[in-house]
Design a protein around this nucleic acid. Structure first.
Length: 413
RNA sequence: GUGGCUGUAGCUCAGUUUGGUUAGAGCACCUGGUUGUGGCCCAGGUUGUCGCGGGUUCAAAUCCCGUCAGCCACCCCA
């Protein structure tokens, strides 16, 4: 019987883990420059947080959450991190201590879905939330932060899509208009779109089925339904983006799956990811804080998928620096303890050192040293031990030196 | 939740169409070629419940049924 990793999860190890850490560390550097504070919230939360925050009709809340506990205490593994961060802000009334709250996070999220490329049941998000200012500048800053991360990671194969979905008021008018527009076309639309018509009309605007896209051609865009404030706000966001040199594509049919978004929404997509083309996404939210019981504060944020960034980066060959490793080799069993002492003293100096504890020929120990990409090997045999010396070999030049055992550090650099 | 594809050595896979001795290859690993010297080369060697369970058959990796797992895709999202 073998025990496997749970479905949709992976063990991170070796190169993959290096890549993972590279991404987190890069993000951390960028956050520092943009003056965001790191926050870590628990990996599980009360069920109600997501029911209220993300929305009880969303797919994520309806069918993708890992729920546990009992009727009195229902918990879920967090499916996203915006609602938990909002909860943190509300619970600690951070807005009473400062005007603008700028937080970033990196952590695992969980969704009970069928795994596929770029989609896991446990995945990791890096994200930020900027809460407290009703300014288009915040939306633009949030977008800039992720642009900056992409730049630092030298990722260029992506596109940024931006839209405004307005406030609750303008969206209500638009919803009616869309329903009216699609009503006579329902029999021409796919099964999913017929579903969407009832549950969330806007989603049928970005259906991938070609026949549905064909029916979309004359659809009035959201843009024409934005109220004065929302329209001004959106124009200001787009102007600032251009001034900031951020390249974006206006996508009037971009809508997102969480209920909390209002006004600005955005997504970064790459064609190199497989079907799950979204690298990162986010938007503005005016009602989330109030919805979960806090003061009415606007916010904006993004969340990116670390695993999706990893897919984009794993074709690049990261530079593997030559290892600063000293490998100890004993010729006979009698020198085993002595070479261990040598290794220990090297380690004590902070230099990586290793040896084989399995008695093998010098040849196989040399092979092991080569495999571990050692820079130097220290060879100790009877000949050397008798005169209190040790042989040091430089593995890249092949040069060998016989040196006093207490002077080896003069030769290891 | 739905659909398609794939499960054979540690890894990548061939062999399945058309059932037939002892299931192969490359890589990796180990040993040797050098009394105590890596990479390259050469010689040799180790490794398999052919995913699992059942059925058909003289005979099953191969055909049939079931089941599990993985991948990819739909929905939705990171």
């Amino acid at each position: 019987m073998t025990i496997n990793v749970p479905r949709g999860t992976v063990d991170l190890f070796g190169k993959q883990l290096q890549l993972f850490n590279l991404i987190i560390n890069t993000a951390r550097d960028v956050m520092k420059v943009y003056c965001y504070d790191e926050i870590q919230t628990p990996i599980f939360e009360e069920y109600r947080l997501f029911e209220r925050g993300v929305g009880e009709t969303t797919d994520v809340v309806q069918k993708e959450m890992f729920i546990f506990g009992d009727d009195e205490n229902r918990y879920v593994l967090r499916p996203e991190l915006t609602a938990p961060v909002a909860r943190f802000i509300v619970e600690n009334t951070l807005n009473k201590q400062q005007d603008l709250i700028k937080l970033w996070y990196a952590g695992a999220a969980f969704r009970k879905e069928r795994p596929q490329k770029g989609r896991q049941r446990q995945f990791h998000q890096i994200g930020i939330e900027c809460v407290g200012a009703d300014s288009p500048g915040c939306d633009v800053e949030v977008i800039s932060v992720f642009e900056s991360i992409l730049q630092k990671l030298q990722i260029v194969t992506y596109k940024l899509y931006v839209n405004s979905i307005g406030c609750a008021n303008c969206r209500k008018d638009y919803r009616n208009k869309i329903k009216e527009y699609y009503l006579p076309k329902l029999n021409k639309l796919c099964k999913d779109c017929n579903n969407r018509y009832e549950r969330n009309v806007f989603r049928l605007l970005d259906c991938k089925v070609q026949s549905c896209r064909d029916e979309r051609t004359d659809t009035p865009p959201m843009k024409s339904f934005l109220c004065r404030q929302c329209a001004d706000f959106h124009k200001c966001v787009l102007d600032l983006l251009s001034k900031d040199g951020v390249k974006y594509i206006e996508d009037n049919f971009l809508f997102r799956g969480f209920d909390y978004y209002t006004r600005t929404v955005f997504e970064w997509r790459s064609s190199q990811l497989g079907a799950q083309s979204e690298i990162s996404g986010g938007g503005h939210y005016d009602n989330l804080l109030a919805d979960i019981g806090g003061d009415s504060l606007p916010g904006v944020g993004f969340a990116c998928g670390v695993e999706r960034l990893m897919i984009l980066l794993e074709n690049n060959n990261p530079l593997v620096p030559q290892k600063q490793l000293v490998y100890g080799i004993y010729v006979d069993e009698e020198q085993k303890d002595a070479i261990y002492s040598v290794i220990s003293s090297v380690r004590a100096k902070g230099i990586p050192a290793d040896m084989s504890f399995i008695t093998k020929s010098v040849k196989s120990q040399m092979r092991q040293a080569g495999k571990q990409n050692a820079k130097y090997v220290c060879i100790l045999g009877k000949d050397e031990a008798d005169v209190g010396k040790i042989k040091i070999k430089n593995m890249s030049t092949g040069e060998e030196k016989l040196v006093e055992q207490n002077k080896i550090f003069d030769f290891l650099q």
